[in-house]
Write a protein that binds this DNA or RNA. Structure first.
Length: 271
DNA sequence: ATGGCTGCTTTGAGCAGA
């Protein structure tokens, strides 16, 4: 069995829903995690998504943040849904997790941080520490885990169009990259870097200054895989096509292909 | 050059994003 699992920061699902439905149909993605839906649950377009053949779970709020997981109906239930980071009190809707076809899917919208001298940056670092500590337990409970979303961290200089200009700036600062490395140290692997990739590959481009046309971007939308899932990963790509559409999100979707045929059925559920 | 776009908001100029 092959699973195509993707992440996309849509920057308002209200605006981008038609693009999301078109993209699902074109790419035949099995699972899609969304960030920045920017809508309350009571107005979430559940019926439209279900009509397209997907189940969906979501956690939203007005104006900001908001996450969702879509899964092809044929994959069965979206099970054991959990909101947020257990033990970390946070009004901002940035995390939703669920089990789909025996894979634990954790969808995250990491805080942006605004600038390194901002209170929001301190919140970002606290949030990342809480994510790490919670995830350590989740990895024990769910050996087949994928952590995907908008990390708001460019892991390395090769993920930045102008590393000198971005040096020590938010999204690239040493403490943020150290927090990201701590996630990898839990036993997670950056799916994109499992494969040969073009140079200057990015997933976000500023709306201003013709950022996309000039490829002034960052790679901040990532798919991290546990070792068990990384063993079956056969591809990971950034799809730039939606960024070329009318009224695009500033982020492009990222998709990994997982071959699940070899895995043990027994490790599919919670321990 | 601290702006530049875009989406959102107790509809407006201000915020947040990255």
């Amino acid at each position: 069995m092959t699973l195509k699992i993707a992440t996309w920061n849509v920057n308002s699902l209200k605006v981008r829903l038609p693009q999301v439905l078109d993209w699902l149909a074109q790419q035949q993605a099995d699972v899609l995690c969304l960030q920045e839906t920017k809508m309350e649950d009571r107005v979430f377009p559940q019926a439209e998504i279900e009509a397209a053949g997907y189940r969906v779970v979501f956690a939203g709020q007005k104006t900001y943040n908001g996450v969702a997981i879509l899964a092809r109906r044929a994959l069965g239930d979206i099970a054991h849904v959990e909101h947020g980071i257990a033990g970390f009190v946070d009004e901002q809707q940035r995390v939703i997790s669920a089990s789909i076809a025996g894979v634990r899917v954790v969808c995250v919208y990491v805080p942006n941080g605004q600038s390194v001298d901002s209170d929001k940056y301190q919140y970002k670092l606290r949030w990342l520490a809480a994510l790490h500590d919670w995830l350590a337990g989740q990895m024990q409970q769910y050996p087949q885990l994928v952590l995907l979303g908008d990390y708001n961290i460019a892991p390395e200089d090769r993920d930045v169009h102008d590393p000198v200009a971005w040096r020590d700036k938010v999204l690239c600062s040493v403490p943020e990259r150290a927090a990201f490395q701590r996630l990898l140290d839990l036993g997670l692997v950056d799916a994109y870097r499992l494969f040969e990739q073009p140079e200057k590959s990015f997933s976000w481009w500023d709306y201003r200054m013709m950022g996309f046309r000039r490829n002034l971007g960052l790679r901040i939308d990532l798919i991290l895989l546990s070792r068990q899932l990384a063993a079956g990963c056969t591809a990971c790509v950034i799809d730039k096509a939606p960024r070329r559409l009318e009224r695009p999100s500033d982020h492009a979707p990222v998709m990994a292909t997982l071959d699940l045929s070899e895995r043990s059925e027994l490790s599919a559920g919670p321990a």
